[in-house]
Nucleic acid binder design. Structure first.
Lengths: 232, 232
DNA sequence: CGTCGTGTGTGCGGCAGCGTACGGACGCGG
DNA sequence: CCGCGTCCGTACGCTGCCGCACACACGACG
């Protein structure tokens, strides 16, 4: 389909000039699962434009509460604070599925942003997308059940990676969904019962994406619409 | 204390030039309680810099779920999407407590933003504040009980308005906290029992802000720290 | 003085998810 | 082949909040 095996849509959406100005300031890197690209309070040295990996944006409070508030793949970037001119990262960015990404130096990015209004406006629109999506999540967690939210997250992961088989454990999903591991097992087995997914020992296969979309909470569709409206 | 009876801190933080450039493009308006400054999908024609009023930022899904994800007073502005270059508002902005605000035309604001880098960087930092605060809320709702979240919201309202007596009903609070009205009554009476607040028929008085801060969830302190770090 | 609307107190059954905990299953490495 | 770590199934009691519903209190208004 695409000329290159894997692209980043955000970079593709830029003009030739801006894209080169970004890529020339960075380099390809391989990201391992579980790697931390940003942590709370630590300054971010790089922004990342994923190509074929997925990075979960997680908020973790002082007490033991976690919640995934975003999932970044080839359609986006890691490092929203850099666009907003803040050095410190508010949230944690964890590599959920390994793969490669384009890594860009924070200072270089800041310079490019000052120089190009087009680049600035594109990335600010992306910030807006993440802003809206986070608002969705805030309601989602308390309004929708585990099963629906699990379906949503699996679909999102599939979309980001363009693959139907995901390497995810119930344990990991539980942490990003902010529920018990046992709760995920329950929800997952219900989805499997309905032939929507199939899973075994850390490997989840999406059998029926359309069916899953029905089982998922409306936030899934809402999320896609938000992105399409601003960057489609 | 201040030279004028009521100021907006965001505007005060700007240089003389930028502040004038903004204020000259707008005008003072009076906002009534319950008024909608922005609604889902509707284009925003104005940004608002509150002086002595409080505006709740509410996300409301298609189904009957509401949740306040931000409270804007003299320390901030209503119209984050305008800073990000998006016309449509993702969230609803409702006037929680009546008062006056500085209203600025959206197009004029966009022009000023292009012209002044200082203005841009200040407002982008504010966007970042709201971005982080929303992440807080996302976890807060499911991690903390009604009583703690009520205490937090009351404190926030008090801070925004610099007053200890608020005109809020349990009903209204229930909607912004995303819980039952009865749940608010329960939590409020518990706080009153402990002499932290006192209330009657739509009027709530904060008796012991420090005690309230203890009763409130850590998100309250976290919120203040976020703001102070970026714009203090 | 009664009426009505709004605001608050209270009660009850129900449920989703929590914390915990134990046991089985698979797979890798020795 | 055995042992151990990881991953998943399942169970039990508990709790916080929901949805609903009804009764009372105050105040404005005629």
């Amino acid at each position: 389909m695409t000329t290159k095996p894997a692209n980043n849509l955000l970079l593709d959406g830029l003009g030739e000039r801006d894209r080169k100005s970004i890529t020339s300031a960075g380099e390809m890197v391989a990201l391992r699962g579980g790697e931390l690209l940003a942590d709370v309070g630590r300054a971010m040295a790089y922004a990342f434009f994923p190509l074929d990996c997925a990075i979960a944006i997680v908020v973790s409070q002082t007490d033991q509460t976690r919640l995934g508030v975003g999932l970044v793949g080839r359609e986006g970037m890691v490092g929203v604070p850099l666009i907003l001119g803040a050095a410190a990262a508010p949230l944690r960015a964890v590599v959920q599925s390994a793969g490669s990404a384009w890594r860009v130096d924070a200072i270089a990015l800041a310079g490019r942003l000052r120089a190009s209004e087009r680049l600035r406006s594109t990335l600010l629109k992306y910030v807006h997308v993440r802003y809206e999506q986070m608002a969705q999540v805030a309601v989602c967690k308390s309004a929708h059940g585990v099963e629906a939210r699990l379906a949503r997250w699996l679909l999102m992961s599939g979309d980001r990676l363009r693959r139907a088989d995901l390497l995810l454990t119930h344990e990991l999903l539980a942490k990003t969904l902010g529920v018990r591991r046992a709760g995920v097992t329950l929800a997952a087995s219900a989805l499997q019962e309905r032939r929507l997914i199939r899973y075994a020992r850390g490997r989840i296969e999406l059998l029926d994406p359309q069916g899953l979309a029905v089982a998922a909470c409306p936030c899934y569709v809402a999320d896609k619409r938000i992105y399409a409206r601003l960057l489609g």
